[in-house]
Simulated scan of single mutants.
Amino acid sequence: MSLEQNINGAIKTAMLAKAEAELRALRAIKAAVLVAKTAEGSTGELSEADELKLLQKLAKQRKDSLDIFRQQNREDLAKKEEEELSVIERYLPKQMDEAELRTALQGIIASTGASSPADMGKVMGAATKQLAGKADGKMISALVKELLTK
């Protein structure tokens, strides 16, 4: 079942349960899917990879907004972003923890033959392809930098 079909079913369930926060997040996902499907040059269908990128983008937007709202002591707005983020994360694959990510990156570094910080681009290219959707880009970058400077 496609993401759009899952979201439509979840919207119906959230409406019946009168779950306002969940409904808000689901509608945001649905709107983003519709925009992506009708974008210029689009085929009208989204691949699974496109759906994953879309969800990651929405989650990143929520995380960034959450950080800003917390810095500005706007807990009311931060709470809304947090609620939406938790709903969006349900549709994303499970994220790797730091230990799993470190192990995966060590394998990627070994396979690319990287040995210094100058090889970071080569490692990042392979890592972002291999770990797409499983880990945050900032965390990947920080760990690659740390592993290559040892």
Rank of each mutant, 00 (worst) to 15 (best):
M1A: 13
L3K: 06
L3A: 08
Q5V: 11
N6E: 14
I7M: 05
A10P: 00
L16P: 00
A19T: 08
E22C: 02
E22N: 13
A25Y: 09
A31Y: 09
V33G: 00
V33S: 00
A36T: 04
K37H: 02
T38F: 08
S42F: 01
S42T: 10
E45W: 05
S47E: 06
D50K: 11
L54W: 07
L54T: 03
L55K: 04
L55E: 05
Q56G: 15
K57W: 03
L58C: 07
R62V: 03
L66H: 11
I68K: 08
I68D: 10
Q71E: 14
Q71Y: 09
Q71T: 12
E75R: 09
D76M: 08
A78F: 05
A78S: 10
K80I: 15
K80N: 12
E83H: 09
E83N: 15
E83W: 04
E84M: 15
S86H: 12
V87Y: 07
I88E: 08
E89V: 08
Y91L: 05
L92F: 12
P93C: 10
K94R: 14
E98T: 13
T103F: 02
A104W: 04
A104D: 05
I108R: 00
I109H: 03
A110I: 03
G113N: 09
S115P: 01
G121F: 07
K122G: 00
V123S: 08
V123W: 04
M124C: 04
M124Q: 06
M124D: 05
G125M: 09
T128L: 09
T128C: 01
A132V: 03
D136E: 15
G137K: 12
G137I: 10
M139L: 14
S141Q: 14
L143I: 15
L143Y: 08
V144M: 04
V144H: 05
V144F: 05
